[in-house]
Nucleic acid binder design. Structure first.
Lengths: 121, 121
DNA sequence: ACAAGTGTATTAAATGTCTTAATACAGTTA
DNA sequence: TAACTGTATTAAGACATTTAATACACTTGT
């Protein structure tokens, strides 16, 4: 389900959260679907249960999953996270484009980047 | 010359390097111009000389400055870094736009982001 | 009621990175 | 020669991440 990258310098809990988020955002995990238990996923990833716990807590905080004590974690409906994700992505794009601009990248070049990415099907 | 942001969670040496890089990229520091000495900049920023030293080492590694032992650090000619910076920025933009795309952002929305950033003068 | 599985919380220890500090050494300049 | 440059090393502290070992509360199925 998930493969961790130990060359990545970001914390493991963030990596886990991000990878699950991507699965959810792209439909690899559907609303209502049950996630692995904290302990099972920890075993799967050879990671401490606390690490998974933190990842799940972050995901719930952002609306991607719903946690029910004693039962487990379930993927939330799109309505709970889609808007937030979108605005987060837009902010991120703007930040990076701003950096690129101040590094000397021109409008046309930035637009070309975007088009190129969207042409990859 | 530089103001550090202690809320920023990135290492100080990276922050220093990035801020100087921005100054160079935007012409605030011209090729041939002398940078503050390791010790002086450290005093200015209330930071350890080792921290500045690491920042300068990173900048030399990327071609932004030239270090001459005993003399100091000097801004390199554009030829040494401009191309690298540009391709680095373009890669970064593509990565983020790719993330945004897979999160559901549409082409028009991404283009709008870019235009908005470039309209801020 | 019970056992097994869930999430949650806490505390302690280990680890790794960043930063400071104190020095020392080597090259350049006036 | 004195005062400035960059460079290197070692030790210590601070901090975040991760592991580990428990304990507790809730849910499910028998």
């Amino acid at each position: 389900m998930i493969v961790l990258d130990y060359r990545d310098k970001r914390p493991l809990n963030e990596q886990v959260a991000e990878k699950i988020m991507n699965l959810i955002a792209q439909g690899g995990l559907s609303p209502g679907e049950k996630l692995p238990s904290v302990r099972n996923l920890a075993l799967d990833l050879s990671v401490n249960p606390n690490t998974v716990q933190r990842a799940y807590a972050a995901l719930e905080e952002k609306g991607y999953i719903t946690t029910i004590t004693g039962r487990g974690n379930y993927v939330s409906d799109e309505g709970n996270w889609k808007a937030g994700l979108k605005s987060e992505m837009i902010t991120e794009v703007k930040v990076v484009v701003g950096k690129a601009k101040s590094a000397g990248i021109k409008l046309d070049e930035a637009l070309a980047c975007v088009r190129e990415v969207f042409e990859r099907d």
